[in-house]
């Protein structure tokens, strides 16, 4: 089975998210970018599937900040090919545009299955995978927690609230949005990533010039103005613990004498 895994770079949510001057996007020039964690899950599931059925895994990214590291790391983990699509992506990429670029590139590739992260932290105009599937006019399954070989195609476990799972069979080409791989993404050592870098195995191509407007305008981006922010407890860990004890005790949640 030949599997394609699109990988997206996204801002590291642990960082303070500074905004650009007109307050309509994050300040992409200075923020730290990491691989979208759900795409890492998709890669893991793709590698597991390849191990079970044979075939290939190709990772594809568009030229976003630090994407090379993500693609080399995927090669080091066992991907067979890594492709970087060049273009001007400095001011961010909508899901509609990303999906259109991927659809155009996939048009020239042979593949059976696309596994992609179920969402990214910044897919304001929808998740890339489901848009991609419908541009390609193939089936899609979202929130997948397992993809296994099944009667020549695959069986996808799709998760609903409360841990209910539905199993679906896909008999043709499809795009699957991965929520979690069947096992935690594998670790790869820095030395193996370096070796992948030295192999020079990163293929480069131009991203298609697509017409894919979202039809949406971001007027402003802002930190939620919470009406009820937590009261922050002062002092060191012992002071904080003492206050918490007081709070829970006042509510009768600790049955004590003292």
């Amino acid at each position: 089975m030949d599997i394609v895994v699109p990988m997206q770079q996204t801002v590291d949510l642990v960082e303070e998210l500074e905004l650009n001057d007109d307050g309509t996007d994050v300040e992409r020039e200075y923020l730290k970018f990491v691989a979208n964690e759900w795409d890492e899950q998709a890669l893991e599931e793709a590698l597991l599937l390849k191990e079970a059925t044979g075939g290939t895994v190709t990772v594809v990214g568009i030229d976003e900040t630090d994407v090379d590291g993500t693609l080399f790391s995927a090669l080091a983990k066992g991907a067979d090919r890594a492709v970087k699509l060049g273009g001007d992506f400095e001011s961010g990429v909508s899901s509609h545009r990303r999906a259109a670029i991927l659809a155009a590139w996939l048009g020239g590739e042979s593949y059976d299955l696309v596994l992609v992260g179920v969402q990214s932290p910044e897919d304001l105009d929808g998740q890339t995978g489901v848009i991609l599937a419908n541009l390609l006019d193939v089936a899609h399954v979202s929130v997948a927690i397992g993809v296994q070989p099944h009667e020549g195609g695959v069986k996808v476990s799709q998760e609903f609230g409360g841990g209910v799972v539905q199993e679906l069979a896909l008999s043709g080409r499809a795009v699957v949005g991965i929520q979690a791989a069947r096992q935690a993404p594998r670790y790869v050592s820095i030395s193996r990533v370096r070796a992948a870098m030295q192999s020079g195995a990163l293929e480069e191509a131009d991203a298609a010039d697509v017409d894919a407007s979202t039809g949406t305008t971001v007027r402003r981006l802002y930190a939620p103005e919470s009406t009820s922010h937590a009261e922050m407890l002062a002092g060191d860990a012992d002071d904080v613990a003492a206050r918490i004890l007081e709070i829970v005790r006042e509510r009768g949640l600790v049955k004590t004498g003292g």
Binding site: H96, D125, G126, V130, G161
Partner: peptide, 23 residues
């Protein structure tokens, strides 16, 4: 924005050509 919604909204946007605001 449930599992069902995540499977439908974006695809509908692509098929119907109608803009989507997620979340």
């Amino acid at each position: 924005n449930t599992t069902v919604g995540m499977d439908v909204a974006g695809g509908l946007s692509a098929r119907a050509g109608v803009p989507l605001v997620a979340y």
